[in-house]
Amino acid sequence: MFSAATYNESELVNRLTNGDQQAMSELYDRFSGAILGVIMKIITDQAIAEDVLQETMLKIWNNINSFDTSKGRLFTWMINIARNQAIDKTRSKGFKNSSQNSSLEDSVYVSETVPSAGASVDTMDVQNWLLHLPEENRQLMRLAYFMGYTQEEISKELNMPLGTVKTKIRNSLIVLRKKLNVT
């Protein structure tokens, strides 16, 4: 499905830097689904998630000159922007006033108990790749990755030693990576 070899990343980045709108269109076609998928791990309401996707793509367009091809991969960079954008959204006043509850303890189970509107059964299953992890590690990963809490904040909030938080998150990532490699 995805392969780094199927498109020329640096060429695409060059075109984007030069304000080539056609390049943006190609970028969108290639990555918007995946980016929305990441956003919807954090915001399950597809309408709000699509707003965040829009903001994310604009941010990519406007900040493409701060992306350095030699330092990292475009897609990873974009995913991280999307994630941060989504987390910012969940912390915004308007979002908090909506039905979503983003307090640390309560939000822990949200992404699993609330089915995302519009997501097919198949993608739901894949979305639950966190299920590969023991419950505690899943919770930590959700807080750290999908909710953007720093490891220090998680340590304080869950009353868990920082070292333990770090170890569990690291181990979770290593496990996830292995699982993703297999699938």
Partner: peptide, 19 residues
């Protein structure tokens, strides 16, 4: 990065056309 990108690709959700 490739692994996690592949993981992200797997959970892709097609956005509405108007986006």
């Amino acid at each position: 990065a490739a692994t996690f990108e592949a993981g992200a690709m797997q959970m892709a959700v097609t956005p509405s056309a108007d986006v």
